[in-house]
């Protein structure tokens, strides 16, 4: 493989890794707060993409406004999912909440099939994201530059919120000790909603950029990325934001490199995530960045 091909694939891997990272953060944040795997997260990602699609195609809004609307509506949607499917089970056994999560996921997927139709839709790509940039003899589609940049900006904002604001502090406190947080007058429900809101905004942005890169929308489009990003979160050490980012990039880059270096294994690119998961669970069950999590009682 030539250098130019390698660089092209690298750019591909970085942008795919960015998308995985954005989605993985949602899993890890919700897990951190509620010790819950939000199986509906991949579907929230799908809903965000469809909202952007319809704003652009049915409402003919400019792309940037459509993206903004998609982020806002998806944020609200994520919060509603939590209030409807998880909040009533706050004091129930973990298995009930997990079943509810799976149910929520099926419900959203099937509603999407009814509402949006099962036939694939082509995500409209604004020109600025679709330019071919030539550097020497390497040609890279411009969206591959925008994705890591936008992801980087979102990450910086997120880390600032989590580390430097009072709400972020409260999030970390709730994730450590739910009851002690309540004793400080922290409204745990509000913090949980906030967490779902953030996770959903990132999922929406991830979905939109996914659409820009792979402009083929189907109601089940969240399934595979959702599963992989959950794996990314586990690989990085679930509960840890930096871990989710790391896991996302390892997954994205790894997948693309398989395609690039071992073309005969291209058909197995989806298997990479699962093999990685097995290896990590065997070698470092708490994940790369994870400390040994104690079970929350």
């Amino acid at each position: 493989m030539g250098m130019s091909n390698f660089l092209q694939q690298l750019a591909n891997g970085i942008s795919l890794g960015s998308l995985y990272a954005l989605l993985a953060i949602g899993y890890t944040m919700v897990y951190g707060i509620l010790r819950l795997i939000n199986f509906a997260h991949g579907d929230i990602f799908m809903v965000g993409t469809y909202i952007a699609f319809y704003s652009m195609t049915s409402f003919l809004l400019p792309w940037w406004l459509s993206f903004l609307i998609a982020m806002i509506l998806t944020c609200i949607f994520g919060i509603i999912v939590e209030k409807a499917a998880y909040k009533p089970l706050r004091n129930s056994p973990r298995i009930s909440v997990m079943i509810s999560a799976i149910g929520a996921s099926f419900l959203i997927e099937n509603l999407a099939i009814v509402l949006f139709g099962g036939r694939p839709k082509a995500f409209p790509i604004p020109d600025m994201f679709n330019k071919v940039v030539k550097i020497g003899n390497v040609s890279i589609v411009s969206v591959n530059f925008y994705i890591p940049i936008i992801t980087g900006i979102l990450l910086l904002i997120l880390l600032y919120v989590v580390n430097n604001t009072k709400t972020g502090m409260a999030m970390r406190a709730v994730s450590k000790d739910y009851e002690a947080a309540r004793l400080m007058g922290i409204d745990v429900n509000k913090i949980v909603s906030f967490t779902f809101g953030i996770g959903s905004v990132l999922a929406a942005m991830g979905g939109i950029m996914w659409g820009l890169k792979f402009p083929n929308l189907v109601p089940l489009m969240g399934l595979m990325p959702g599963l992989k990003c959950f794996i990314a979160a586990v690989v990085g050490g679930i509960g840890d934001i930096r871990g989710a980012v790391l896991g996302g990039f390892i997954l994205g880059l790894g997948e693309i490199m398989i395609v690039a270096f071992l073309p005969s294994l291209t058909g197995y690119r989806d298997a990479f995530a699962f093999i990685l998961l097995i290896v990590i669970l065997l070698l470092k069950p708490a994940g790369l960045m994870g400390k040994n999590l104690t079970e929350k009682v």
């Binding site: 970390r172 450590k176 009851e179 002690a180």
Partner: peptide
């Protein structure tokens, strides 16, 4: 049992 936020 104190219950301080250990990660903060």
């Amino acid at each position: 049992g104190r219950r301080v936020f250990a990660n903060l």
